[in-house]
Design a protein around this nucleic acid. Structure first.
Lengths: 189, 189
DNA sequence: TCCTCTATTGACCATTGGTTAATAAAAAGT
DNA sequence: ACTTTTTATTAACCAATGGTCAATAGAGGA
């Protein structure tokens, strides 16, 4: 009723993003409503617009963290002490594992074609790709054809995106994924 | 004003689908409104619900034809008189060409993750995949590993879906596509 | 105590997908 | 030719949505 809450319950951006993340993952972009998020937080939907310009900006705040997560995973592999060929395999597997164990997030990051959202996510996706390219170049011959690396990346992406939504988790297609990794390495040679 | 039009202008399903197709391709699923389609047809939006249960059913009527189109293209290659290895290459190229010259349609067919729409499109997509698998089996060794064919298909899909929306037409990435086709054939060996 | 800034409310708007009673035109029956 | 039935359409209606904004209660400083 009162137009402002006591200081102990003021909204923080982080609380909003967390609530929104849960709902986006559970229901997908379209079916999440600002009112629904607000109600989970116990505030009016208008309040959200004080912290985020619109639904898309709130959504992107969620997605941004997922890119950080993936980039972190890849970085760890690159900095590990394993042998190069194994690292390469690990990277391919890691990407697929991430995609299929965080499917909704992967969709948001690499598969959403919504024009408004996309302009934001595309930049981050491109960054992820460069990291991938850089890793491959380091792990394989330095003068690997760029087009081969590109083919490897899109083949990887194809695997994840094709299974997204039709399996529950990575383990269900573990064998296929490993075969696909070998398929890609064969193509890279 | 009158509750029924003279017989010369009664709506047909086909007219509706054509108008809808244009709008879906131009604006994407979410941004097309039943009112918008109705207004292009010069009728009230309620009239559309007489012919189609809801927006999704109207949408699927559009997509169905696109699957027929792609299947037809693939069939023509298979029935051609070329040599097997060339046919295989043709199929791979044809798929990418279709995807990138009819990007919105490809999105609708293979990339849309909308839960409601998807249940319908998924069946048709699976059918397309079986046709692909059958063709590869015929063109390559009959006992090609199924997992290899699967990898080939998802690699192909990955190429299209990765470029979808970021290039205007197939010709812009023709060289990459041809390299990718060779990459896939290498993996299939 | 007064003032300013901050965060929140709730009423409001236009637009959307979808439903439905009313009904005019067409078709079928006689 | 008249009546009845069926068909296709309208327009008014509903609940929900994303988004805007004036009003205002609380917090913190002077």
């Amino acid at each position: 009723m009162s137009p402002r809450k006591p200081s102990s319950e003021v909204l923080t951006k982080e609380e909003i993003v967390n609530a929104a993340r849960h709902q986006f993952i559970a229901k997908g972009f379209e079916k999440v409503t600002m009112r629904g998020v607000a109600s989970q937080l116990g505030c009016s939907h208008g309040a959200l617009y004080y912290h985020f310009k619109n639904k898309i900006e709130l959504f992107y705040a969620v997605v941004e963290k997922d890119f950080e997560h993936l980039n972190q995973l890849l970085k760890e592999i690159i900095n590990s002490t394993k042998e190069n060929h194994q690292k390469l395999l690990d990277i391919l597997i890691c990407f697929m594992k991430f995609g299929l164990n965080h499917q909704k997030q992967y969709e948001f990051m690499f598969m959403m074609k919504n024009a408004e959202v996309d302009s934001l996510a595309h930049e981050a996706a491109t960054k992820s790709y460069y990291q991938f390219e850089y890793a491959i170049l380091q792990l394989k011959n330095q003068n690997t054809e760029p087009s081969l690396i590109y083919s490897a990346f899109v083949a990887l992406h194809g695997f994840v995106s094709h299974h997204c939504g039709y399996v529950k988790e990575y383990n269900e297609v573990k064998e296929y994924a490993e075969a696909h990794a070998l398929f890609i390495i064969k193509g890279l040679a």
